[in-house]
C-alpha cells in the first residue's frame, strides 16, 4: 500500500505512547531494579539472577511452568477448536457456547471457591463434600486429597481449573474465525464426497491455522505468568509453585524488590521462543 512516510506513525502514535508509559517504562525500571538489593539501595550485580536460577523453589517453579505451558495450551486450544467446530452443527449452539464461555466471566477468587467444592477432601468414612471424592466413594474407592498429592495430581488439578476458565475464550475466537470460512468451501468438499474428518483436516484446519497459532502464542504467554489460580488454591505449597507466584511473594510478602524484579525479567526471557516463532510468520506475510 502506498503511504506517506509519516502516515504509519500517526496510526501507531497512540499505541506507542500508552505502551511506552504503562509497560515499556516499568519494564526498564524493573530491569534496573533487578541488579539491586531488596530495598533497591545497594548494587548487587547478578546475585538476584543467581538466586532465580539456582533456588530450589524456583527450579520447581520452572518445571511446573513447563507443565502448565504444555498441558494448558494444548488442552485449551485443542478443546476450543473441537468445540467451535462441533457446536456450529447444532441448533442450540448459542446455549452450549454460553455454557462453556460463561466461566470466563467468573473472577478467579470466585473460581477458587467453586473448585474447592470439587477437590474438597474428607477422610474415608466421613461424608464427602467434594464432588470428585464423592464420585470415587460411589465406586468404593478411597478418597484422594487432590491438592496435596504431588507432583502430578495436584498440578494437573490446578491446570484443570485454568482449562475450565480459558477454553471458552479459545472457543469464541476460533468460532469467529471458523464462521468466516466461506460455506462454499465446505460444501464443495462435501459434494466431492470428502468425509467430515477429511474436511476438518484438509480444509478447516489449514484455514484456521493462523488463528490457532495466535491463540497458542497467547495462551503460552498467559500461562507463563499464571498466578491467580495457584495463589488462591495452594499458594505454591506441596510442589505447585509457579514463577509468577514466586515473583508476587518476593514482591509483596517479602518486599524483596531486587529478587522479584529479577524473576520478572526471567519471565521475559522465556517469551523469546514465542517471539521468534511469530517473527517467522510475520516476515513471511511481509513479503
Amino acid at each position: 500500500m502506498q503511504t506517506k512516510k509519516t502516515t504509519p506513525w500517526l496510526y501507531l502514535a497512540p499505541a506507542l505512547l500508552v505502551l511506552g508509559f504503562f509497560l515499556v517504562y516499568p519494564s526498564i525500571h524493573t530491569f534496573y531494579l533487578s541488579f539491586f538489593d531488596r530495598g533497591s539501595v545497594r548494587w548487587v550485580g547478578l546475585e538476584n539472577y543467581l538466586h532465580a536460577f539456582t533456588n530450589l523453589v524456583m527450579l520447581t517453579a520452572f518445571g511446573n511452568n513447563a507443565l502448565w505451558v504444555a498441558v494448558f495450551t494444548t488442552a485449551t486450544v485443542f478443546l476450543g477448536l473441537i468445540l467451535a467446530v462441533l457446536f456450529d452443527r447444532v441448533k442450540y449452539e448459542i446455549i452450549v457456547k454460553s455454557i462453556i464461555f460463561m466461566h470466563m466471566a467468573i473472577s478467579f477468587v470466585s473460581a477458587s471457591v467453586i473448585w474447592k467444592f470439587v477437590y474438597a477432601f474428607r477422610p474415608a468414612g466421613a461424608s464427602q463434600i467434594g464432588i470428585l471424592n464423592a464420585a470415587l466413594e460411589l465406586f468404593h474407592l478411597p478418597p484422594v486429597p487432590w491438592l496435596i498429592e504431588r507432583p502430578w495430581i495436584n498440578n494437573l488439578c490446578l491446570i484443570a481449573v485454568g482449562v475450565w476458565v480459558w477454553t471458552g475464550f479459545c472457543m469464541v475466537v476460533l468460532s469467529a474465525s471458523y464462521k468466516s470460512i466461506p460455506k462454499q468451501f465446505l460444501e464443495a468438499a462435501r459434494v466431492d464426497g470428502a468425509g467430515e474428518w477429511i474436511i476438518f483436516r484438509k480444509v478447516i484446519f489449514p484455514l484456521l491455522m493462523p488463528t490457532v497459532t495466535v491463540l497458542a502464542t497467547t495462551m503460552v504467554i498467559f500461562v507463563l505468568k499464571v498466578f491467580d489460580i495457584v495463589y488462591v488454591m495452594t499458594n505454591g505449597n506441596f510442589g505447585t509453585e509457579v514463577i509468577a507466584n514466586r515473583m508476587y511473594k518476593e514482591m509483596f510478602q517479602f518486599r524483596n524488590f531486587g529478587r522479584s524484579s529479577a524473576i520478572a525479567v526471567v519471565l521475559l526471557l522465556f517469551v523469546l521462543p514465542m517471539m521468534l516463532l511469530n517473527l517467522r510468520r510475520f516476515k513471511k506475510e511481509g513479503m
Binding site: A120, F121, P123, P145
Partner: peptide
C-alpha cells in the same frame, strides 16, 4: 489426629 496427616493438611 482425625483423618491423619492428609486431613490436617487439607
Amino acid at each position: 489426629v482425625y483423618g491423619g496427616v492428609a486431613t490436617a493438611l487439607t
